[in-house]
Nucleic acid binder design. Structure first.
Length: 207
DNA sequence: CAATAGATCATCT
DNA sequence: GATGATCTATTGC
């Protein structure tokens, strides 16, 4: 808490709901990562919901395995998986323990620790390249499978409400890069935000 | 700006 | 043994 506004850390109850609701309400919140080098923070501008039942695009679709165990665990924990031999992606677990469901974090707007992020992302030549993609933001924030299963309601990786948060519209689209259930409207973005992933043309159609 | 190829490996069949 | 919730560099217009 501080003099400018009310800042609260999201608790387990926030995540203990339908992933669609969690994904929408995560927009505009801050992902906070404390490292030995300093504090990194990013505003969530793009999320995707992965449902527990009948969602064949979700890793949890085929039951509990060594990898998907965390998705079936308690809400408010991190599910970090390795993909394409190179990248790691961050999800936040939703739904009560025993019921699968999670939210993929697809893009952030850098808020604090930009210099540290740039050091971790030498190939990013612009500010928006830093964290505009699920693989990019984990690199920038130093999130790896070491954080898999971590409790996000406490500890060095957390989510908080923003001190100041201008009103925004939420745009809903199909999810990116999946084969199954490819037309389900489960991707949520802050409309018009330049830090959303994808090409410039896709994001900013000329006016 | 659009399209495409290549990198690279944990996970599950 | 195939596949994948991706990113980057490169090519061509």
């Amino acid at each position: 808490m501080n003099s400018i506004g009310r800042v609260t850390q999201l608790k387990a109850d926030f995540f203990n709901r339908d992933p669609r609701r969690v994904a929408r309400e995560l927009l505009g919140k801050l992902l906070i990562r404390k490292t030995s080098r300093g504090v990194l923070a990013g505003r969530l501008v793009e999320t995707e919901a992965y449902l527990g039942r009948h969602d064949l695009a979700a890793h949890s679709a085929h039951g509990i395995t060594a990898r998907t165990r965390v998705i079936f665990g308690p809400p408010g924990h991190a599910y970090v998986y390795f993909i394409y031999g190179m990248y790691e992606c961050l999800n936040l677990v939703a739904e009560p323990k025993g019921q699968p469901g999670c939210v993929l974090i697809r893009a952030l707007e850098p808020v604090a620790g930009v210099e540290i992020m740039q050091r971790r992302r030498p190939t990013a030549h612009t500010l928006r390249d830093l964290t505009s993609g699920p693989g990019r933001l984990t690199l920038a924030m130093g999130i790896t499978r070491a954080q898999n299963g971590a409790d996000v309601t406490r500890g060095p990786l957390t989510v908080r409400t923003a001190r100041r948060n201008d009103p925004f519209e939420i745009e809903t689209t199909p999810r990116i890069g999946i084969r199954h259930c490819a037309d389900w409207p489960l991707r949520f973005v802050i409309k018009g935000n330049p830090f959303v992933s994808g090409s410039r043309a896709t994001r900013l159609p000329r006016d």
